[in-house]
Design a protein around this nucleic acid. Structure first.
Lengths: 163, 163
DNA sequence: TATTGTTATACTCTATAACTATA
DNA sequence: TATAGTTATAGAGTATAACAATA
């Protein structure tokens, strides 16, 4: 692929050799571009080998960290609609990774918990993601990675604000 | 909603009142959580008023910044498959926002350009996103926002590496 | 033979409305 | 009346395979 004009700024932009003026300050665009990298890693480490999508994986991890969460809480945490959470939990239950039990204090709510197989699966996936992301993020120092996580947290906390 | 146990760490996590151990170091998860905020802004400022999705908007902005890009280049920049780029360009062409012209040097490639209406539309959207994101990111200082963009760029540049 | 773009098609994911059952 | 969860269904988005035109 031969080029004719020098394209100064474009050379340094992440999106494959294209200039991005106007989008440089749009945080949503920058997040999407960075996500391309992590999405590819997820696909290779989790989606293909385990036959599991991002939502399913995140549900497993959140249930592991929050035993007996309700479906409602999961839906809110993942910004997913209630009907869809029901669908995901159906799938995860059919695969033997989660179990649903009715609350004794409020018969409307479902407590979601991990099975032994579900625990094994999520641990295996988290480990694989750790390794692969560590490799891919060699361009960032440990301090930069920690800073990035901290800033993303700070941004994520803006949810539900009167923006 | 009354709580019984103290849940120390969970109190400080972004995802609505849920703990996230195991996922704290997974960059893909942190990016997804932060994206919830920008996705809501995009929906309110662009998707609903203009009837335009994220891919369509990004195509317009990239075409504006890179006059006469090819469909192939757009597909690569957006991590979208060639058939889908053709579909998006069809939609954008039907709405009168982009025009396709055949290259004179290589009759296989299509040069994509913005119409006057397309330029107006993308400028209006970018401006609306700027304002809304600025409001929502009041929790981050200007220096933090710049740092965040820089780190996301650095991460995005890891695309295609042998990770 | 390789590349650009397109058509056809099926699949995944998501959103809305209406329903059940509990409170 | 309000809430947790579910069903039914339509839509948006994405992927693969096969094809045409050009190099």
């Amino acid at each position: 692929m031969t080029r004719k004009t020098p394209l100064a700024a474009a050379e340094r932009t992440p999106v494959g050799r294209l200039a991005e003026p106007g989008l440089h300050d749009i945080m949503g665009y920058q997040l999407a571009q960075a996500s391309v990298v992590t999405n590819e890693i997820f696909r290779r480490c989790v989606a293909q080998p385990e036959g599991m999508g991002k939502v399913e994986f995140t549900i497993l991890a959140l249930v592991q960290a929050n035993p007996d969460v309700s479906a409602r809480q999961l839906a809110q945490a993942l910004a997913v609609t209630p009907p869809n959470i029901a669908m995901w939990l159906d799938k995860l239950e059919q695969r033997g990774w989660v179990a649903r039990t009715r609350s004794t204090r409020d018969a409307r709510v479902q407590h979601v918990s991990l099975t032994a197989e579900g625990t094994d699966t999520v641990n295996r996936c988290v480990q694989a993601l750790h390794v692969a992301e560590h490799d891919a993020m060699g361009t960032l120092s440990a301090a930069e990675q920690a800073m990035l996580v901290e800033l993303l947290h700070k941004l994520a906390r803006a949810r539900g604000r009167p923006g």
